[in-house]
Every structure is written in structure tokens, then in C-alpha cells.
Design a binder for these strands. Structure first.
Ligand code: FES
Ligand code: FES
Lengths: 145, 145
DNA sequence: ATAATAAAAGATAAAAATATCTTTTATTAT
DNA sequence: ATAATAAAAGATATTTTTATCTTTTATTAT
């Protein structure tokens, strides 16, 4: 069990890859994205379709078409992608799976888990989609291994 | 998507409930546990069977039988339960789902994600199975809502 | 206009996680 | 010994997640 679903992992990797290529001024086809982030192509297509419908990623059909991010989208927090794909349970849910988390009627893990949740929230709110463009271009980071 | 699998959530809740009752000197039947932690009984049975096989929880069959923890088991970290049920991905895995996490060839989230992972690890290693017994007995914590 | 390209949409399929049911085995009390 | 109890084990079912395939629609270049 990983923290994020496969769907969400693919989404985040794809988003970072497309962001980097957008920064360079290109659009990217689904095939190229899938190859570079090591994900099943048709499954990734579905994920990006969803993000596209929600306006989180830009796309154009036809020759020279593909996915890209405009300036506004590059500045969105990764949290938006996660929420679109996995919902907001990771930001608000109970660590022991109770139907809701509450301060006044907490589960045993509540105090400790809150810290974990806050750190995740901080991480996803403070990393923008375009944050790692330079690092990715310079080969400082990897998206497929 | 929650941090832990349903299986793991039920396991943790069950373990806290049984620990509390063990502290009071009782054994608890699967039915009673399932009712008190609000989980599907036969599914929970499978989970506890697994923990039992691994020696993480004690059980006896027959009349007055049920599950309980001995003193040594009460002092084990919750991490042992999580590992038995969900494996160790949550302690070592990559946040973006790459096949392994590495310092020298990191994913973009690596630095931030490491902190999250460390906090989860700390939480699960420092809470023992019996840690919340008093709080549970006094009704300070809940396991079903 | 036409042909080529690439995403969008819809329909299926496979695998994994979650859940249930039935039979067997061990333990205890009588 | 016997009957009652409760977990263990094995087989099966359902649901959700992950993955694939086919058809349609929009865009671009010629
Ligand atoms: S009640 Fe469980 S994390 Fe808040
Ligand atoms: S490489 Fe992704 S978390 Fe370490």
C-alpha cells in the first residue's frame, strides 16, 4: 500500500513531465508522456482526459497537438491534481478510517496523524506543478525508474 | 484514497480494542471486536488470523476463547501490525510510485516526501499497541463512528 | 475540401482489494 | 467421553482499481 493511488502517482508524474516540456514551449502526445513516466498509455490517457475536463491541464487535438500547461496552470499547486484524482480524504480523513476526523471525538492516532496529514497538505500545497522544471531539465530529478 | 488500506485500518482499530480489553484481563471474540470497531466480521476474522499466525496477537479457541495480547505483545509498536498487513512500502516507498526511492536518483517530491515518510514511521514506531489503553477505558478515544 | 493526426469518449477486460460463507480444528465445561 | 464454543482454514463472491480496445471528434497542414 502506497500513500497515493496508482492513478494519482501517474497523474503527478505526468504533470511534472508535461510541465517541463511546456516550459520548453512544446506540447506532448500521450504516447511520449507514457514512455517517459513509465505508465500504461491508455490508462494515463483516461487520467489526463479527466484533468483536461476540469481545466487543470490544457490540450489540443490534431497534428502538433498534445498536452501542455499555460502559465496559470503551471502555478497551480500539486494538491489540485491530487484532489481531482483521489479526492480530499488524504487532506481531511481519519488515519484509522473512521467516517470523519474530529477534534472532540478523536481516534487514538488523531494527534500524531494530524501532524502527518498537515505535512502532506503542506507538501502538496507548496509544490506547484511547474516547480521542478529546471531540476528536471538539468536531469537532477527522475520520473521513471 | 486513504493513507492505509481498509485492511490495515481495521487491523489497527481491532488491535487497540483488543489491547484495552486485554489490559482488563479479558479475551474478546471476533463478533464483539467487529461490533465495537464497526468492521465486517468475517473480513476482520481473516485479518486477525493472519496476525495470529505471525504471533502478533494471541488467541485461544473454544469456550471463553478469543483474542488477547500478552504483555510482550502489548509493547510491540503499531508499525509491526502495519507491516504485517500492508507491507513496508509506506516506510520506504517512493511518493511518486517509482519502483524504489533513492537519494542519488530522486523523484521531484523526494525531499518533501521523505519528511512525510519519516513522520509516519515515527508515529507507528512510537505508538505501542497498548499505548492508548487508559484513554480508551476512560472514553477519551473512539474506535467507531 | 481532404487527409493526417491526436485527444475525447465509450465500452470492455483483467487484476486486486474487500467481503462472505462453509467446513474443520482446538479448547473448555459438563 | 460429550456437547458447546470459538478460532482457523478453505472456497467463493463482490466491488473497486487498474488497464485496454474501439470509435468519434477536433485540429492542422496540404
Ligand atoms: S479522528 Fe482519527 S485522525 Fe482525527
Ligand atoms: S525517490 Fe521518490 S520519494 Fe524518494
Amino acid at each position: 500500500m502506497a500513500i497515493f493511488s496508482k492513478t494519482c502517482e501517474y497523474a503527478m508524474r505526468a504533470v511534472f513531465y508535461v510541465a517541463q516540456r511546456s516550459h520548453e514551449g512544446s506540447r506532448v502526445g500521450i504516447k511520449e508522456i507514457a514512455e517517459h513516466i513509465n505508465s500504461p498509455e491508455p490508462f494515463l490517457a483516461k487520467i489526463l482526459q479527466k484533468l483536461s475536463r476540469e481545466g487543470l491541464i490544457q490540450s489540443v487535438k490534431g497534428p502538433n497537438g498534445g498536452f501542455y500547461f499555460d502559465a496559470a496552470s503551471l502555478n497551480r499547486p500539486l494538491a489540485n491534481i491530487v484532489t481531482a484524482v483521489d479526492g480530499d480524504n488524504i487532506f481531511t480523513g481519519c488515519g484509522l478510517g473512521l467516517t470523519y476526523c474530529s477534534e472532540s471525538n478523536p481516534c487514538p492516532l488523531h494527534e500524531d496523524f494530524k501532524k502527518v496529514r498537515n505535512q502532506i497538505t503542506h507538501m502538496l500545497n507548496h509544490t506547484t506543478i511547474g516547480k521542478f522544471n529546471m531540476g528536471l531539465i538539468k536531469g537532477k530529478f527522475t520520473l521513471n525508474k
